[in-house]
């Protein structure tokens, strides 16, 4: 995991914008509070459709995406997200991890693939790293993934 520089804090002036898409209410709410406390700007939704709508309206640095949700499937959301706002990095976070899902997710440009239950500090670090990658990509124009 040393491929990314995860030194904190992020050097940006602007707070990291995070979108959490997860159907587990308690998890989603609490995660938002925790991340906000760590200086991030967090928006939450329980639904893939709404998540896409939010992502279109606002530009997030990172989206935290659950794969198994009622309504739109997480992998579909991931795919659409890449189309709508390709710069936003997506961190997939799921409790029903299968090898097939993780491979598909990475192929569809997910930044990382994490399993529930995840250590929140680790999740925060991954989000920060993703944000840095996203910002580097946007400002540099080169860089790639």
């Amino acid at each position: 995991m040393d491929r990314r520089d995860m030194s904190q804090p992020a050097e940006s002036k602007e707070a990291i914008g995070v979108l959490v898409i997860d159907d587990e209410k308690v998890f989603r709410d609490t995660l938002a509070k925790v991340l906000k406390r760590r200086g991030m700007a967090v928006k939450i939704t329980a639904d893939g459709f709404e998540g896409l709508a939010l992502a279109q309206a606002d530009t997030f640095d990172v989206a935290v995406l659950d794969l198994k949700m009622p309504g739109m499937d997480g992998l579909t959301v991931l795919e659409r997200m890449h189309e709508i706002c390709p710069s936003t990095e997506v961190v997939v976070l799921t409790g029903h991890a299968t090898v097939e899902d993780s491979i598909t997710a990475i192929r569809q440009f997910a930044f990382d693939f994490l399993f529930k239950p995840v250590e929140v500090s680790w999740l925060a670090e991954v989000i920060a790293a993703a944000a840095r990658a996203k910002r580097a990509k946007v400002s540099g124009g080169t860089g790639g993934v």
Binding site: E24, F27, V34
Partner: peptide, 23 residues
């Protein structure tokens, strides 16, 4: 198998709550 996965969700919530309390 489905049930085992099902445990991961409350566990994730618990972990987040734990961190929240610590904070």
């Amino acid at each position: 198998a489905g049930v085992a996965h099902e445990i991961n969700n409350p566990l994730a919530s618990i972990e987040t709550l734990r961190v929240w309390i610590s904070d």
